[in-house]
Amino acid sequence: MTSMQTAENADIAIDIDNLSIHFGSGEDLVKAVDQVSFKIPAKQSFGLVGESGSGKSTILRALAGLNTHCGGQMLLAGEALQNERSKAFYKKVQMVFQDPYASLHPRHTIDKILAEPLAIHGLDNAERRISEVMEQVALPTKFRFRYPHQLSGGQRQRVAIARALILEPKILLLDEPTSALDVSIQAEILNLLNRLRDELSLTYLLVSHDLGVVSYMCEQIAVMQHGKLVELLEVDEHGESHAQHPYTVQLNLASKGYDREVIGQFIDHD
């Protein structure tokens, strides 16, 4: 694949090498991630799309040290990740979870949620950093002393993004970061992510089911199905990619909108 050749010359921020992650055993064995490989050059945005349940979140969670893998390896800037993650790792790599509500402490105010990572990493100027990051994600200051349940879904998602940004990481793992947001806030967040990437030389691994979003944001897109990477796409400067795999072709068709006739003809690509 041509992308691999260009990637080899550049700095590789994330190298996923023949990664496998299984859950359960016997009849209930799930090969959530099945021998997946890809490389993300530093400062790139890499998109991960695919079927629901195909292992996208599992890969992100494994990178973040929340899942153990049973095969292959993950390298960060050339260094293989061990099972234990250090504090320094989390200063460098942050994740925004798919389920923002579940990942925000229900009894902590937004202020406390944002102050906590700063305290853990011994960073000062909490006051200034918190108001800055809230402004970056367009959260009005009046929300600062509210609890998560007092916010709308999109407001909570912005808290989750702010919490990841506050440590000024180098790599962001973003699991459906804008799927709970309306398109105007989505536009602001995507612009923010692109601006930060340029300013701070960040690398993104972005999971989204929205092909419009990944085509706009990313240079490469990996398509997953059933734990396997079925297609690796290059996105050209016009946001176009040339899908060949029948599953990807069907995804493209589905993103054109609702048409009862067409849906009846969808097939499961097993």
Binding site: V49, G50, E51, S52, S54, Q98, E176, S179, A180, H209, D210, L211, Q250, L251, A254, S255, Y258, R260, I263, G264, F266
Partner: peptide, 14 residues
């Protein structure tokens, strides 16, 4: 359906 891939999303809407 905000967390579903577009194919399944349409199938669920159907």
């Amino acid at each position: 359906t905000s967390a579903l891939d577009v194919t399944v999303q349409l199938q669920v809407l159907a």
